[in-house]
């Protein structure tokens, strides 16, 4: 780790939205590989770094819909309010990662998303993350309605993702099952 957390998309601005373009279902915006800085004593990606990778995928999604440095500087952002991770498999240093994102639902200020992290070659599922995000007025420190432009883009993504199956872990509480 360096002086602070840096995402690979910092300073890269936002995606130029094209109303006519087909929207992938799910979105596949983030590919990376397991950095030497992320591995633990046994050469596998440490548990806390899964969340870092999902954060980078969320940043790619933000830039896809139009939220970048300029958007935040103008006073609004999407904040994570909840994250629920499921760890499935270990992954070794240098292995490729492919992260997808499904828009589960959204309303006038909340965005509910689901990430899958897979091995970039074998496609084996490594981890999932379900997240609830809220659009905020940074200065006021409270939630605020999404601007029409972003709401329309989310509507379009929602439409494209409507046919995707709802992952079975979504909304499921954590617990120890008894046999």
């Amino acid at each position: 780790m360096g002086d602070r957390v840096v995402t690979p998309y910092e300073g890269s601005g936002h995606h130029s939205w094209d109303d006519a373009a087909a929207i992938e279902a799910p979105l596949r915006l983030h590919h990376t590989s397991v950095s030497p800085a992320w591995v633990d004593y046994n050469g596998h990606m440490s548990e806390s770094c899964y969340l870092l990778v999902f954060g980078d995928n969320a940043d790619a999604f933000f830039r896809f819909i139009g939220i970048d440095e300029d958007y935040r500087a103008a006073g609004h952002s999407l904040y994570t309010v909840e994250t629920h991770l499921h760890h499935r498999r270990e992954v070794a240093e240098g292995e490729p990662l492919a992260v997808s994102l499904q828009l589960l639902d959204h309303d006038h200020k909340r965005v509910h998303i689901f990430h899958e992290m897979r091995h970039g070659e074998s496609g084996v599922l490594l981890a999932t993350a379900e997240q609830m995000l809220v659009h905020v007025d940074i200065q006021a420190g409270r939630s605020a309605d999404l601007p029409t432009l972003l709401a329309e883009r989310l509507d379009a993504i929602q439409h494209a993702h409507a046919a995707l199956p709802r992952p079975d872990v979504v909304g499921r509480p954590m617990g120890i099952e008894r046999h």
Partner: peptide, 18 residues
């Protein structure tokens, strides 16, 4: 710790997990 912060000077989401 400084290594837990991101661009805005606040703790990054992943750092809460750490």
């Amino acid at each position: 710790r400084a290594e837990w912060l991101d661009y805005n000077g606040h703790m990054n989401d992943s750092s809460y997990g750490i």
